[in-house]
Amino acid sequence: MQELQKTLQDKITAAMEETLENMAFISVEECSAEEVEELDHPQLGVNLLVREPVLFEMQLHSSKELLYQVAENMYAMEREELDDRLINDLLAEVLNTVAGLFMSAILPPETKFALGLPELSDEIEGGSELVFNYIAEDCPISVEIKTADLDSFKSLFSN
């Protein structure tokens, strides 16, 4: 399990770095769950199903403050001008992009994959061993992977 966590951490970190750097010139750093907890930011969540070649779920939980900072950079708008719809859309697009980069990184180039549409979620269930925490602009952001079939999920890394 530790080996899988390390592999996942490397791939997800690379995907997070590329996504936030491209979207808003923001860098991310890995951190512990305790650091995220200490920051105690209000968060928003979104999840997305990876449908093929193996079914599993990716969740992204981000500090609202970070999303506002990214949106301010991207849209060149004042905070008062940013509405919830735009912030939710941004959150969904971050996960969509991270998921695509992650799948491209772990699969051979000849293997197609299919992503579902991102869905907003208020619930932060936790409990998964596959949670990867980051800090960006002093705000927490986390990616969680959930699978009902760990063996199938592990098979993605056997090539």
């Binding site: 992009t97 695509g100 699969l107 180039p109 197609k112 994959f113």
Partner: peptide, 9 residues
């Protein structure tokens, strides 16, 4: 322009 693209797609 997609997030679900790779060489095969």
């Amino acid at each position: 322009i997609t997030s679900a693209g790779n060489e095969a797609k």
